[in-house]
């Protein structure tokens, strides 16, 4: 009895922890909803399958707990002797199957949309290096490298003595952020120069491996201006933890302006050479 209750407590405190999401805003516990149509769809799928699992779990574990409470020897029960039942077995094969089909359909739809990179307004080519990113704007001719900002870099050395809490956006800040316009379909091409990396910005709902010798494609459409941070998501050696991604989403005018500055800058650079 005592044991079962303790088991119950642990089980449900786990589930409660999930349900208490808003109360734990500081302790981020869930996937960000993100700022693109796709990221929202993905969030929806995530929550759907999560609740389906919770429901199935509650059912199965509920029955199990009921049985643990009531069908125990200490209560003087005698074990029944049944050990098969074809109808039940068919039912619990077919019902999960149907649940799965009903989840597979929306998932497949979203997936098909995610892989449709046609008709993009803008193409960004991202190349992974050990350990930084190179960004090339194929239409606008802008190109630069982006790596961990120097403050984080100092703080992250072994026993640096610098408190990470004191560094703004510790490990999630770069010297040169990627600037992208909002409300444009942006096609992102990934590749790498040495080993495999992966370009991931959670709020944009995209992640793709950057593979040497091959180009992968994905797309995004950012709906709100803002700064979105991400990290390399494929083990790429010693400093895998230290090649973050920062996307600055701006309005179209600001983007144009930025491009002009950049091309001006690079022209000036070439002129001075």
């Amino acid at each position: 009895m005592r044991h079962a209750r303790a088991g119950l407590t642990v089980l449900f405190s786990g589930i409660l922890l999930f349900l208490a999401t808003p109360a734990l805003a500081e302790w981020a516990v869930n996937m960000p909803v993100g700022v693109t149509p796709i990221s929202r769809e993905v969030y929806g799928l995530h929550m759907l399958i999560f609740w389906v699992c919770v429901a199935i779990g509650a059912g199965v574990f509920g029955v199990m707990l009921w049985s643990i409470f009531h069908h125990r020897k200490s209560r003087g029960v005698k074990a029944a002797s049944f050990h098969e039942h074809h109808m039940v077995e068919v039912i619990w094969t077919v019902i999960p199957f149907l649940i799965l089909v009903s989840m597979a359909v929306p998932a497949a739809k979203t997936l098909i949309r995610m892989e449709d990179t046609r008709d993009a307004d803008l193409t960004l080519k991202v190349t992974g290096y050990q350990w930084m990113w190179q960004y090339e704007y194929l239409e606008d001719g802008v190109s630069f490298y982006s790596k961990l900002d120097s403050e984080s870099n100092k703080a992250r050395q072994l026993n640096s003595g610098i408190d990470p809490e004191s560094v703004p956006h510790y490990l999630l800040n770069v010297d040169n952020p990627v600037v992208l316009p909002v409300n444009k379909k942006i096609r992102i091409l990934t590749t790498a120069n040495d080993v495999i990396h992966a370009w991931w910005v959670p709020a944009l709902g995209v992640k793709k491996d950057a593979i040497p010798g091959f180009i992968n494609e994905m797309w995004t459409l950012i709906e709100e201006p803002g700064i979105y941070r991400g990290q390399c998501a494929e083990l790429c050696g010693k400093d895998h933890a230290f090649m973050p991604i920062v996307v600055k989403a701006v309005t179209e005018e600001e983007y144009r302006q930025w491009v002009a500055e950049q091309t001006g800058k690079s022209e000036a650079e070439t002129a001075s050479l």
């Binding site: 080519k125 091409l189 590749t191 010798g213 091959f214 180009i215 494609e217």
Partner: peptide, 15 residues
């Protein structure tokens, strides 16, 4: 793919 077939079009074109 390296030769540009299927999803390798850009792989071939750019690399």
């Amino acid at each position: 793919w390296l030769g540009g077939a299927g999803s390798g079009a850009l792989t071939n074109e750019l690399l």
